[in-house]
Simulated scan of single mutants.
Amino acid sequence: MFKSAKSAFTSLPFRLELRGTPSRRMTYLSPVIAIILTLFLGALLFIALGKDPIAGLKVFLVDPFSSKRAISELLLKSIPLILCALGLAVCFRASIWNIGAEGQFTVGAMCAGAMLVWIDVPDHAVSGGVGLILMIIAGVVGGAFWAGITALLRDKFNANEILVSLMLTYVAQLLLMYAVNGPLKDPNGMNFPQSKVFSSEFMLPTLMSGTRLHIGFAVTIVAAIVMAVFMMRSFRGFSLMVGGVAPHAARYAGFSSRNALWVSLLISGGFAGLAGAFEIAGPIGQLLPSVSPGYGFAAIIVAFIGRLHPIGAVFGGLIMSLLYLGGELAQSRLGLPSAITGVFQGMLLFLLLACDTLIDYRLRWKKQG
């Protein structure tokens, strides 16, 4: 069977050949081509579903910019995506394949929520500002701790970080369900699995009046700039990148692969935990089982759209935020199922990988005879 498959493949009239190192312009052009192709296939999908493709694309591309409130929701949705992608970019550049940002996000949200439940009591002695700082620290530490489990198992037992981080995501979701049905459950919540609604003084201050956009967006932009300097201009960031691209050269230069493992995973988990803390102290205002609609997994696409660069992650997060908001608007205005968001995300990821492959390789027709 394998011989017949091999002979069928070799009989094709074309073959893939390595192009060599692609130019930087082509590398950054790949996400643009993938986005354009995603919109084209999306239009065909709308036609197949019996919808007007112009109206469908308008819902995804125009309506999220139609008002001040719509723009604020777009920026708000991008915060957890960008933060998770910043950490993942560090890991992926170091060739540490952390697929568990969703679990680290969940644990960060749970730890931040537990902190707010503890300090948000009648006659509390903690002021709102101090409470927010404690909440953020709890979220960052929780996310970093959860990523540290992956680092520990990889370091001590050489466990595959892809499987470990992914499986820990489901453990984190079960822990969250236990927390909102047990110690963090609102006693006055009519038996719903949720924490109490946190006081307004423990909520993140808003950036735009009349909207839900909070100060976390400004923190996210600053974090992207700091990470860009760290990854591109610092010795530690350089050692992480060398270890990912050329591990033998890194060992020869004296860079520790063990340090790269721990540093990249702790940074990634910390950013994901920070995103979870911002989510419960921002738009949600309490701890819920559905604290994340898949931000940690979507951030993988965001990181690659941004070419594993912190500034690119900002643009990638905005694009992915468009897909989230467009999917929600398509449900309410066009009557499409909720799966439309996942379909667009899947198309974008597939086309991005295809464009990267065709840039690295090229099709050449075989000479007959």
Score class of each variant (00 low, 15 high):
Met203Val: 14
Met203His: 14
Leu204Thr: 15
Leu204Gln: 14
Pro205Lys: 11
Pro205Trp: 09
Thr206Leu: 15
Leu207Pro: 05
Met208Phe: 15
Met208Cys: 14
Met208Asp: 07
Ser209Asp: 15
Gly210Met: 05
Gly210Val: 13
Thr211Gly: 11
Thr211Asp: 11
Arg212Cys: 02
Arg212Pro: 04
Arg212His: 09
Arg212Met: 10
His214Arg: 12
Ala218Phe: 11
Ala218Val: 14
Ala218Lys: 12
Thr220Ala: 11
Thr220Trp: 07
Thr220Val: 12
Ile221Asn: 08
Ile221Gly: 08
Val222Arg: 01
Val222Phe: 13
Ala223Cys: 08
Ala223Arg: 02
Ala224Asn: 09
Ile225Asn: 06
Val226Phe: 15
Met227Asn: 06
Ala228Ser: 13
Val229His: 04
Phe230Tyr: 15
Met232Ser: 11
Met232Cys: 08
Arg233Trp: 11
Ser234Cys: 12
Ser234Val: 08
Phe235Lys: 14
Gly237Ser: 09
Ser239Cys: 07
Met241Cys: 12
Gly243Asn: 11
Val245Glu: 06
Ala246Glu: 07
His248Arg: 09
His248Val: 13
His248Ala: 14
Ala249Asn: 01
Ala250Ser: 06
Ala250Leu: 04
Arg251Asp: 09
Arg251Ser: 10
Ala253Lys: 11
Phe255Tyr: 14
Phe255Gly: 04
Ser257Asn: 07
Ser257Leu: 15
Arg258Cys: 07
Arg258Ile: 15
Arg258Gly: 12
Asn259Tyr: 10
Asn259Gly: 07
Asn259Lys: 15
Ala260Thr: 08
Ala260Met: 05
Leu261Arg: 03
Trp262Ile: 10
Trp262Asp: 09
Trp262Thr: 08
Val263Ile: 15
Ser264Phe: 03
Leu265Thr: 13
Leu266Cys: 05
Ile267Glu: 03
Gly269His: 03
Ala272Asp: 03
Leu274Pro: 00
Ala275Glu: 04
Ala275Arg: 02
Ala275Gln: 03
Gly276Trp: 00
Ala277Ser: 11
Ala277Phe: 00
Ile280Asn: 00
